Simulated scan of single mutants.
Amino acid sequence: MLGKLPKFHDDNLLVGIETSDDAAIYKVTEDIALIQTVDFFTPIVDDPYTFGQIAAANSLSDVYAMGGEPKIALNIVGFPNCLDPAVLGEILAGGADKVKEAGAVLVGGHSVQDDEPKYGLCVSGFVHPKKIFKNYGCRPGDILILTKQIGTGIVNTAIKAEMASEAAVKEAVTVMASLNKKAKEVVEKYDVSACTDITGFGLLGHCVEMASASEVTFELHVEDIAYLEEAISYAQMGLIPAGAYKNRGYSIDQVDCGTVAEHYVDLLYDPQTSGGLLVSVSPEQAEEMIKDFAEKGMDTKISIIGKVLEKGEKLIHLK
């Protein structure tokens, strides 16, 4: 479908849609480039304020994934007439608080009547043209680091089935509502070869995308990856969102699963909401980066999930 869109060219367009990167980047001056991104979705939690926080954190994430700082945000709202406007007020309050936490300013937005609530942000940010994080360029020998635990889609499925514990809900909300601001502030201090944020395609979907664009193979150590505490048991119970199966269908032919248990593959394809940053960095710098994350006081778990190899027959090897 996107292939039918006209192609645009501008010498100042540094990152467009061609590489499936996280946001568009347009050079304004030799020292300033504009980052532009937009995202919104339907509620994934019952509490409207928390939903607003999560949706805003998710929208802001793409700017951090490109190495930038968000500066201006606009609300995007779909809201049904049958719901109390106070609910919308709580959603917008949650979003506004996350924008403020990011150090950006909220300057209005646009709303339409819709049968189901929807909320997100259009975000503009800035980055130096020579300091952009891109989702390709991984070097063989690099170490792969993930800045949030995964499994939010599976835990949200357990919540809908009324099978999730209070602790599982609390951890999932903390992960989804956490900004990638602190992670980006650590990552930008190092010579990272590639970076992206983990969202709807799941960890494996984004790894396939990054490995393909970089013309390398990723070796992922499944048991070293940080998961939400109860996500593994929920996956073993079969509480898998439909999106995980769709993700699997897109790229499983590029993944050597080896003898990895099926529930781990489900977890790796689990669609994430407001996931962490996936970073490719040299082994010489990886150890210092991990120390910096610890000193930063992150609210999420950091894990070394694997390494980058020369391109092989498959894009991903699971171990």
Results as ranks from 00 to 15, higher is better:
residue 236 Q to A: 11
residue 313 E to R: 10
residue 223 E to I: 02
residue 229 E to G: 13
residue 9 H to R: 15
residue 104 A to F: 04
residue 177 A to F: 02
residue 43 P to W: 02
residue 32 I to S: 08
residue 30 E to A: 09
residue 31 D to L: 07
residue 250 Y to G: 09
residue 226 A to D: 15
residue 144 L to W: 01
residue 120 G to F: 00
residue 319 K to P: 01
residue 63 V to W: 03
residue 107 V to N: 10
residue 227 Y to T: 08
residue 22 D to M: 07
residue 19 T to W: 11
residue 132 I to T: 07
residue 293 F to W: 08
residue 167 A to L: 12
residue 160 K to P: 15
residue 243 G to D: 15
residue 129 P to Q: 04
residue 280 S to W: 01
residue 35 I to Y: 00
residue 139 R to S: 12
residue 208 V to Q: 07
residue 309 L to G: 05
residue 179 L to A: 01
residue 295 E to M: 14
residue 185 E to N: 01
residue 5 L to D: 11
residue 71 K to T: 14
residue 38 V to R: 10
residue 44 I to W: 00
residue 133 F to E: 03
residue 173 V to Y: 03
residue 33 A to R: 00
residue 258 G to T: 00
residue 166 E to C: 09
residue 89 G to W: 07
residue 74 L to Y: 11
residue 6 P to N: 11
residue 17 I to Y: 14
residue 152 T to E: 14
residue 200 G to F: 13
residue 292 D to S: 12
residue 169 V to P: 08
residue 284 E to A: 14
residue 213 A to W: 07
residue 204 L to W: 06
residue 288 E to K: 12
residue 169 V to R: 13
residue 310 E to L: 06
residue 247 N to D: 08
residue 1 M to W: 10
residue 266 D to H: 05
residue 32 I to R: 06
residue 15 V to C: 06
residue 134 K to I: 11
residue 37 T to I: 03
residue 143 I to D: 05
residue 99 V to N: 06
residue 156 N to M: 11
residue 237 M to I: 12
residue 22 D to I: 04
residue 276 G to K: 02
residue 7 K to Q: 13
residue 161 A to P: 13
residue 228 L to C: 10
residue 150 I to S: 06
residue 256 D to V: 00
residue 304 I to V: 15
residue 112 V to D: 09
residue 158 A to N: 11
residue 212 S to Q: 14
residue 147 T to H: 04
residue 7 K to A: 15
residue 92 L to W: 10
residue 56 A to L: 00
residue 103 G to F: 05
residue 239 L to A: 07
residue 224 D to R: 01
residue 190 Y to G: 02
residue 299 D to V: 14
residue 318 L to V: 01
residue 27 K to M: 10
residue 227 Y to V: 03
residue 110 H to I: 11
residue 271 P to H: 03
residue 146 L to W: 00
residue 255 V to P: 02
residue 286 A to C: 06
residue 292 D to M: 08
residue 142 D to E: 00
residue 262 E to R: 04
residue 240 I to H: 01
residue 243 G to T: 14
residue 149 Q to T: 10
residue 124 S to K: 06
residue 284 E to R: 08
residue 191 D to S: 12
residue 318 L to C: 00
residue 311 K to A: 07
residue 231 A to T: 09
residue 275 G to S: 03
residue 289 M to T: 09
residue 306 G to W: 01
residue 187 V to S: 04
residue 92 L to F: 10
residue 220 L to S: 01
residue 34 L to H: 02
residue 133 F to G: 07
residue 191 D to G: 04
residue 210 M to H: 09
residue 145 I to V: 06
